[in-house]
Design a protein around this nucleic acid. Structure first.
Lengths: 137, 137
DNA sequence: TGTCCATTTAGTCTGTTGACGAAATAACGA
DNA sequence: TCGTTATTTCGTCAACAGACTAAATGGACA
């Protein structure tokens, strides 16, 4: 009960995890895509994703070497759905969230192989450069 | 934006603060009443209340030497109302929350002067004793 | 004015959290 | 099978959070 609610509320009490939840609204993403958008170390991102999954907010599936995460449709935690519903209706106009969305759009124009492969660092750098918002990668 | 949401989500990410929000649903309470129900040091409770107020979840009014807190109806933080609405619909059947409600009912039978005065410690002790749930103070 | 008492603030201590790099794991392709 | 690569786990470290005690604040009342 209170324990389940706490795992959800603690999950959304961190801005990085809120960013993850918001960037997954349009659909599932690979870990390397999420990592590129956030600009954090893979280990850090993995830990956040694991925590969100444990709280019942995310589901994941493996496809080859890639792992895709999506907003959960499970019933593990009864408090997850109402919280996800609430989040869907807010923060769309927040600057940080909006910038993430811009990066997401840019990332969707690049094949996963390119993003996660050799060109990874170069692309991620462009994604987070000062002129990143209007650069065309 | 994200900052305002974070102050709310961090507020509800602690079980003590969730207990406070739930015990204030029926109506306002004095700090000494909240302290008695929680069984924590007054300074600790005061800090939690201050944090909840800063997040826009609580309002307060002074009456003499007592300070009464209630669920906020202000518009300081746009994320406070939807979160309070969500909370109203959940956790009513949680054991901890239910026990707090029992203590609240018991406290409401005692005049504030008695609760905050000399008999304070004795009453609080009864409130938190093993047989406290069925004791009649 | 001075005392009493509810509440808040200040200071401290301990446990938790979020970041990282390095090492382990797992799956693909040669 | 072996190397490569995406992801996770492990170990570490600095920053934060929540608890307490002690001291400060502020209103009530003699």
């Amino acid at each position: 009960m209170l324990e389940n609610f706490e795992s959800v509320s603690r999950s959304i009490a961190d801005s990085t995890r809120v960013r993850i939840l918001k960037m997954l609204e349009p659909g599932e993403l690979c870990v390397c895509q999420i990592t590129a958008i956030l600009g954090l170390a893979p280990a850090t991102v993995s830990k956040h994703l694991s925590l969100l999954r444990m709280a019942g907010l995310l589901s994941h599936r493996k496809q080859g070497r890639w792992v895709f995460y999506r907003l959960s449709s499970h019933d593990n935690n009864p408090y997850a759905p109402p919280v996800l519903d609430l989040m869907r209706n807010i923060l769309g106009d927040d600057p940080v969230i909006a910038e993430d969305r811009t990066r997401l759009d840019k990332i969707n124009t690049v094949p996963l192989e390119d993003l996660c492969g050799d060109g990874r660092h170069i692309f991620t750098e462009k994604l987070h450069s000062k002129s990143g918002s209007q650069a065309t990668a």
